[in-house]
Amino acid sequence: MKKTLLTVTVLSAILSVAACAKKDSEYAAKMRQKGAQVGETATNHKDGVPQNEKKIATNLCEKPQQTVCAIQEAPIAQTLRQEGREKALAQLKKEFSQLPENFQGTEAEFKAGHLYKEQLRFLHLSDAAYRLIYDYDKDVLETLSVVKKLYAEYIQGSTLSEEEKKRQINIVNSTEVLSISKIIESTYPGKDAMTILATSNCQGDGLGMQAHSSLLPGASAGAILLCPGQLVKLAGKEKADRITSLVMLLAREMYHQLQIQAGAADAQAFSCLRATIPGKDDSFFESREMEAMADLMAGRLLFAHLKEVTDVTAKQNSVSLAMNWLCHLPATDPVDSKTHFSNEERIQNLLKIKEAEVLSCGEGPRC
């Protein structure tokens, strides 16, 4: 995933529309009914989220990418995307009657027509429609608390000076995950920059598979953006699985905050990783170091989160699920391909860290 370091630069403002989409009880009831009708793989639970009951056998050690990418979404996730988007688009056309009847809300349409206000409103409406059924913002807030605790424990156990430990823990504790509703509805330093980030990366319907860690202009603390597309895919999963997936995603973006604000690095671990990948020149590794180290740190905290899981197969299942978002990233992105390892390499790299030894996958070196 990308990281963004924003300096105090004048960015073109986007006019934000603050009105919230009202909750539609009939729509919510319809979607919940669909969740109950998708068969044995999904049922309604007390937390209001249709839950995927299907158990997937894994073979993480022998076929890492195939195993991780074989994990399927619950059926409700695609239904949520489709019907939530349709509802938001219909409302957008009501509010902006000048839009043509055949307007589909694509990135190309917004860009061609310079429809910045309409694009931001579509993002706002889409996010609200998805959250009628799966209120992922609640999971994000709960996971953020988990990740901050995991980081505090990791940093306290490191060899950093006491002063640096305090500094890094303060960076972690002050970093906030900004929901789409807060980005659009609230007032805060760097709002124009954040709305630009949200619309350009999450796309109008919010389904872009992006996350960003930023230091906004005028802000004293870091901000993390998780696009709804990253979150909707978890709909229908067990709550524990949803939190585990988000632990890895948030831990990764949080490490970017430590890189941005504290210059965090682990030269020894990266040198170890380089030694496992022969045939590449220095420039290949140098351009990918920051993103690779964020991956490795996310993996370390993921295993810390799963330390109470003693069954190896169960732990492999959880690790596979947490890495599944890597399977949905475009392999040919002109920017990401120059700063990230390939999706397959990233999955393999995460199995090389010393914490992954508990999975009994292969032999060292452990980084």
Score class of each variant (00 low, 15 high):
Lys2Tyr: 01
Thr4His: 12
Thr4Ile: 14
Leu5Phe: 09
Ala13Ser: 12
Val17His: 13
Ala18Glu: 10
Ala19Glu: 13
Ala21Lys: 10
Glu26Tyr: 07
Met31Val: 02
Arg32Trp: 01
Lys34Leu: 14
Ala36Val: 14
Gly39Val: 08
Asn44Pro: 07
Lys55Thr: 08
Lys55Asp: 03
Ile56Met: 07
Leu60Gln: 02
Leu60Tyr: 03
Lys63Ala: 13
Pro64Cys: 07
Cys69Glu: 03
Gln72Asn: 09
Ala74Met: 10
Gln78Cys: 01
Thr79Val: 11
Thr79Pro: 01
Arg81Ser: 09
Ala88Met: 10
Ala88Gln: 05
Lys93Gln: 10
Lys94Pro: 00
Glu95Arg: 08
Phe96Asp: 08
Glu101Pro: 06
Glu109Arg: 05
Tyr116Cys: 06
Phe122Thr: 01
Phe122Met: 12
Ser126Pro: 03
Asp127Glu: 13
Asp127Lys: 03
Ile133Cys: 05
Tyr134Lys: 03
Tyr136Gly: 04
Val140Asp: 03
Glu142His: 13
Thr143Asp: 01
Ser145Thr: 15
Val146Trp: 11
Lys149Met: 06
Leu150Trp: 00
Tyr151Val: 08
Tyr151Glu: 08
Ala152Trp: 00
Ile155His: 02
Gln156Ala: 12
Ser161Asn: 11
Glu163Asn: 12
Lys166Ala: 15
Arg167Ala: 15
Ile169Met: 14
Ser174Gln: 15
Val177Ala: 09
Ile180Gly: 04
Ser181His: 12
Ser181Pro: 04
Lys182Asp: 15
Lys182Pro: 00
Glu185Arg: 13
Thr187Trp: 04
Tyr188Asn: 07
Ala193His: 06
Met194Pro: 02
Met194Ile: 06
Leu216Arg: 04
Leu216Trp: 09
Ile224Leu: 13
Leu225Ile: 13
Leu226Tyr: 10
Leu226Asn: 05
Cys227Met: 02
Gly229Lys: 02
Gly229Asn: 05
Gly229Tyr: 00
Gly229Trp: 02
Gln230Glu: 11
Leu231Tyr: 05
Val232Lys: 07
Val232Ala: 08
Gly236Asp: 04
Lys237Ala: 12
Lys237Val: 07
Glu238His: 15
Lys239Ala: 14
Asp241Met: 10
Ile243Trp: 02
Ser245Tyr: 11
Met254Ala: 10
Tyr255Cys: 12
Leu258Asp: 03
Leu258Ile: 08
Ile260Leu: 12
Ala262Arg: 06
Ala267Pro: 04
Ser271Gln: 14
Ala275Leu: 06
Pro278Val: 03
Asp281Val: 06
Asp281Asn: 15
Phe284Pro: 08
Ser287Leu: 13
Glu289Phe: 01
Asp295Glu: 14
Asp295Ala: 03
Asp295Leu: 01
Met297Ile: 13
Ala298Gln: 02
Leu301Asp: 05
Leu302Glu: 05
Leu306Lys: 11
Leu306Phe: 12
Glu308Lys: 15
Val309Thr: 15
Thr310Val: 11
Thr310His: 13
Val312Gln: 13
Lys315Gln: 14
Val319Asn: 02
Met323Gly: 01
Cys327Val: 01
His328Phe: 11
Ala331Arg: 11
Asp336His: 08
Ser337Pro: 00
Thr339Pro: 03
His340Met: 12
Phe341Ile: 00
Lys352Tyr: 02
Ala356Glu: 01
Ala356Gln: 01
Glu357Ser: 12
Ser360Asn: 14
Gly364Trp: 00
Gly364Gln: 05
Pro365Phe: 00
Cys367Asn: 06
Cys367Phe: 06
